[in-house]
Amino acid sequence: MSRRTRIFIGMTLILLLAAAGFIIRYDPSGAKYELFHEHSGQFEAVKSETLLLMDSLDERSDIGNTFIYSNNGNTTSPFHDSVNTEMQDKIGQIAAWSGDSLDFVRYSRQDGKPLLRFVFDWEREHGPTYHIVYCASQSMVEQAYAAEPVKYKLTPLADGWYGIEIE
């Protein structure tokens, strides 16, 4: 075998091993959370404004699900009555960046801690439904999803932020 042939075979093997390593480590569920990683500031802004809004609306320790945004078409406005235009624009921008797969933004408070859920692809038109969730406690996120009749995969995204893929 000539030197040129051995070099060619060696380079081919290296490329095949690198490609195999990439395929093995590739997590397709992580790709959907790129929206959060690219626009985390916008998610943080919506979170901050939601917390201020909900604190001003209700002082109870536990609040059931409040839909801040609902893209189901059953109402004249997709936003909660108390959401100002600035916050509507921020949520609308997240919806646009997601290719309009943002279906709901829901807020609840359990044991005095806020739980904010951005629900994407509810109808599963583009794959599994997934949520981007803010909560200061991962155990509370796990508890909230364990109470629902679904299987899920939790992926930490940032401090207090989690990705939830519904199986």
Rank of each mutant, 00 (worst) to 15 (best):
I9W: 13
G10C: 05
G10Q: 04
T12D: 01
I14S: 09
A20N: 03
F22D: 03
I23K: 08
R25F: 13
G30H: 09
K32P: 02
K32I: 04
E38R: 15
E38P: 00
H39E: 13
S40L: 04
T50K: 10
T50E: 06
L51W: 03
L51K: 06
L51I: 14
L53N: 11
D58K: 11
R60T: 15
N65Y: 10
F67V: 03
F67Q: 08
I68L: 12
I68G: 10
N72L: 12
N74M: 13
T76K: 11
P78N: 05
P78R: 12
H80C: 03
S82V: 02
S82P: 00
D89H: 13
K90F: 02
Q93V: 05
W97P: 03
S101C: 01
L102R: 08
F104Q: 04
V105K: 04
R106I: 14
R109A: 02
R109E: 02
G112A: 03
K113T: 05
L115Y: 07
L116Q: 06
R117G: 02
F120L: 08
F120R: 03
D121P: 07
W122K: 13
E123R: 10
R124D: 02
E125T: 12
H126F: 11
T129H: 07
Y130C: 07
C135Q: 03
S137Y: 06
Q138K: 14
M140F: 05
V141K: 07
A146E: 11
E148L: 15
E148S: 07
K153N: 11
L157W: 09
Y162G: 08
I164V: 15
E165A: 06
